[in-house]
Amino acid sequence: MLKIENLKASIDNKEILKGLNLEVKPGEIHAIMGPNGTGKSTLANVITGRDVYEISDGSIQFTNEDLLELDPDERARLGIFLAFQYPVEIPGVTTTNFMKAAINERRRHQDKEPMKASEFLKMMKEKMKLVDIDQKFMSRSLNEGFSGGEKKRNEIFQMAMLEPKLAILDETDSGLDIDALKIVSNGVNQLRNKDNAFIIITHYQRLLDYIVPDFVHVMYDGRIVKSGDKELAKELEAKGYDWIKEEQAV
């Protein structure tokens, strides 16, 4: 589904991704861990098409399309979704209208009529229930004045609405209380099926108790330097990153 090869990306002439490889197949859940500032969010941004990065080498294939040739919205319509580490506030745009625009835009590109209001409302209700989000957030300005946890939950709600093929969750667990963590994980688990895939960026092994990954990767200095199964996450939790850094230094 997703195949990243030797990806190098820089910003302001500073190389951040330094030859990254990653392959994700349908049905899989990949966790990416790693110290602060090693380029995890950068990877998520480059996959989704943020244009502030310069891609100097490598390729990203997604369902046989060359992603690097596409605009962010085209990538999104192919089925890529990013739950932001820092969701953006858009004053005046309600979550409802934002989702309506997103869904109808997708339909327009499939030559479909805009979704009927009743159908849309039904879908909203269903997905709100899935992530246990209150109706009142739907009519408020997107993310404006939302607490950290509310913003994250809203990201998962949007993911549920858009039903992506590949969802990248960038530290969605940071700032969530235990109950919210369960709800968010539960949402992911219910959306999970054999045709879609998840990349979950996290600092905490705890999330992986709820969303069990097939692979755990450690990212360090712009590369994936170690991959394993969920046991690797436990090892990291226990030992920290020093041993990885030492390994790399050799």
Binding site: T48, D73, A76, F98, A102, Q158
Partner: peptide, 13 residues
């Protein structure tokens, strides 16, 4: 940032 955010939801620039 807001434009990019909307784009990642499939809304053209």
């Amino acid at each position: 940032n807001a434009i990019f955010y909307a784009q990642t939801r499939g809304i053209p620039r």
